[in-house]
Every structure is written in structure tokens, then in C-alpha cells.
Nucleic acid binder design. Structure first.
Length: 357
DNA sequence: AACGCGGGGCG
DNA sequence: CGCCCAGCGTT
């Protein structure tokens, strides 16, 4: 914010609300979580939508609600079943935190999703955005729900050039949104901003010519909508080479293991991976014995590919392997029939391995 | 305040 | 190939 201290000076709030809501009432997207205002469904949808596009979420949401229609069903489910329903969606701690929080709602709040800001934000996985989304969408409270869409839209409408990567900037937008939000229909207001950000006020080449709030937009007036919002912060992506073993025992079963309960892809399953950072290929079999307690014999490399995460890249070489001894040894590996693999939640990178089996 | 945490789609 | 997406928890 550079030009003035109060970004809402000379801004016609009620006219903006009116134009935005009028547009929304006739143009809102028909989404499965908008069929009712069930706070649980709103909650599930908001967690799934974190850093994830609507089109990706829709089938996951439908399947998830079918499997876990109420807080009681989700609270009673096995964690593996919840992760299985989340398989491929990414950010898997969202699923575990959601179930943890739902169990808390069942135990502490009689199964009713709280309508109190403090109680909501005390639940795992619910931060300032999701709190505001649940309060406004499910409970019709005039609470801001500031996400990337809101910051993009209002940075343009009000010509705010603060770095939206900074926490203090998010607080600024929460303050602004708290003043602009409709008290007549806060639920529609927040969803309208999101629809606007997703369909018109998009990151690249926004459709300003058909924007319902064009006449309120300072950036359009100045022709600088493409330069906003300002966002710094670029992370470098580290390369991590691994050998992935498609290891079979004497019965032809395949070795898999569960990843640690913390960190990347926590609690998901995978084929055993050997880090090659500082390891000669000849020593790979020794490393495997030291780590897993079983002797293996590697075959020729069957293929290789990269899998890109937001912060690192796996460079995966795929090797067939066989056990060199009867596996009565103590090992963290689990041997399963190929047909059983579908019962375990795998990250997408390891789902791709299965074609090499 | 900085960083870890997935995966897909788009220019 | 880099950026972006209905963010949050941890440190």
C-alpha cells in the first residue's frame, strides 16, 4: 500500500457488494458442496480446496462424502481408509488432521461443528482462512475468509501492492475484507469473491472486460491489473536420486513399506527406495542389507522417471530385485500379492511404478 | 518470518 | 520449465 494509508478511502462499499452479489446470484458455479450448508461438508470441501483446484477436488469430495457422510462416520473410520480416499490429492496431513479434528468435534462438541471462532481455530487443520470460510458459508457470519483469490481480487480492486507472501499483508486483507463483506449475505459474498477470482479475476490475463466490478477496480483504471498482486518468494527445487526396488520373494509377492508418520507423504506406502546421493551402485545391495536386514539381488534397470514436488524432485531408477534368502528375517518390509496393492494408499509417484511389475 | 508439505494444469 | 492453486503446522 503506497498511495494512501486507508485503502478503502473513496471506495463505494455498498455499490461494490451490490454489483458483486448480483453477478454471483445468476452466475455462481454449481458445485457439490453448495447443495446445502451442512457445516461438515463445507469443512471437508474447504480442507480439500487448500492449494487445490476445484476441478481436482470435485470427484474426491463426492467419493469422500459417500464413504464418510457424517462426522461420526469419519471419526469411526480407519486412518488408512481415510488416506485411501485422499490418495492422489496431495498434502496428506490435511486428511489426518481433518480426521483428528472431527474426532475432537464428536468428543467435545457433541458432533456439532462449532460456530465459534476460537473453538474452530483450535481444531487441527483449521487456520484463519478455513475458520472464516466455515463461519461465513455454513453459519452466515460476516467473517473474512482470506485466501489467494481474495488477495488477488482486492489487490487489484484497491491497488494494494504489498507482498502477499508476507503474513502481515494477509492481516491487512483480513482487515479490509472485514469492512467490505456484506452483512446481509456474508456466505454469498465470500463465495462470490472466490468465483470471481477463479473465473474472471484470474492470475494471468484476467477477463476485465466482462468483470462485474470493473468500475470499482483501481488496477483496471490504471491498466496495471497484470502487475498485481505482488508476490515474492521463489523456492529452489532440490534433486534427490533414488533406486526403487520392485522386490519379490520366493512366492512372487512384492515388498512394500509404510513411510514414517511425520514428513513427506507421511504414513503412505511405497516400494522400498534407496537414496543414491552418496552411494555407489555396487554398494546398493549392502546398504539394503544394513537397512532392511535382507539380502537382495538387483536386476537390470527397467526404467527411470522424475517426480516433481513443490520443493524437491525425485529422480527414480526402477530395478527388479529378488530375495537371496528365505525371508524369515526381521525386516520393516511387507510382502503382498500384486492384487492387494490397491488396498494401500500410495503416492502418485509409486502408483506409476506398478506398470513395471 | 521461513520452511515443509502434493499434484495437476497452464503458458 | 516455472508458476499457480479455496493454506496450515512447525520452528
Amino acid at each position: 500500500m503506497t498511495v494512501q494509508d486507508n485503502p478503502l478511502q473513496n471506495f463505494n462499499i455498498s455499490a461494490f457488494q451490490n454489483d458483486l452479489l448480483t453477478w454471483y446470484y445468476t452466475n455462481k458455479r454449481d458445485l457439490p458442496w453448495r447443495q446445502d450448508q451442512d457445516p461438515y461438508k463445507v469443512w471437508v470441501s474447504e480442507i480439500m480446496l487448500q492449494q487445490t483446484k476445484v476441478d481436482t477436488v470435485i470427484p474426491y469430495f463426492n467419493n469422500f462424502i459417500e464413504k464418510f457422510p457424517t462426522v461420526y462416520d469419519l471419526a469411526a473410520a480407519e486412518e488408512q481408509a481415510v488416506l485411501k480416499a485422499w490418495e492422489g490429492l496431495g498434502y496428506y496431513s490435511r486428511a489426518r488432521n481433518l480426521q483428528h479434528a472431527v474426532r475432537e468435534v464428536v468428543e467435545n462438541y457433541g458432533g456439532t461443528v462449532p460456530d465459534d471462532p476460537k473453538q474452530l481455530e483450535g481444531l487441527k487443520g483449521i487456520g484463519s482462512y478455513t475458520k472464516g470460510a466455515i463461519l461465513s458459508i455454513a453459519y452466515n457470519q460476516p467473517e473474512p475468509a482470506v485466501d489467494g483469490n481474495v488477495m488477488r481480487v482486492f489487490s487489484r480492486v484497491l491497488n494494494i501492492d504489498d507482498d502477499i507472501a508476507l503474513p502481515k499483508t494477509k492481516k491487512l486483507f483480513e482487515s479490509v475484507t472485514g469492512e467490505v463483506i456484506s452483512h446481509e449475505d456474508p456466505s454469498s459474498f465470500n463465495q462470490a469473491i472466490m468465483d470471481l477470482g477463479a473465473t474472471i479475476c484470474t492470475p494471468k490475463s484476467p477477463a476485465c472486460l466482462v468483470c462485474p466490478v470493473q468500475e470499482h477496480c483501481e488496477a483496471f483504471k490504471l491498466g496495471i491489473e497484470q502487475q498485481l498482486p505482488i508476490k515474492t518468494k521463489a523456492k529452489k527445487n532440490k534433486k534427490m536420486p533414488y533406486a526403487v526396488l520392485l522386490l519379490r520373494n520366493e512366492e512372487g509377492k512384492v515388498a512394500i513399506e509404510q513411510r514414517p508418520e511425520e514428513g513427506l507423504l507421511a504414513n503412505l506406502w511405497q516400494f522400498p527406495m534407496v537414496p543414491l546421493q552418496e552411494l555407489e551402485m555396487e554398494l546398493l545391495e549392502n546398504w539394503f542389507y544394513a537397512h532392511y536386514g535382507v539380502r537382495v539381488k538387483l536386476g537390470k534397470k527397467q526404467g527411470e522417471f522424475k517426480h516433481v514436488f513443490s520443493h524437491l524432485t525425485w529422480e527414480l531408477g526402477i530395478y527388479p530385485a529378488v530375495l537371496m534368502e528365505q525371508a524369515e528375517q526381521v525386516t520393516s518390509l511387507t510382502f503382498v500379492d500384486e492384487a492387494e496393492l490397491g488396498n494401500y494408499p500410495f503416492p502418485v509417484s509409486h502408483q506409476k511404478m506398478m506398470q513395471f511389475l
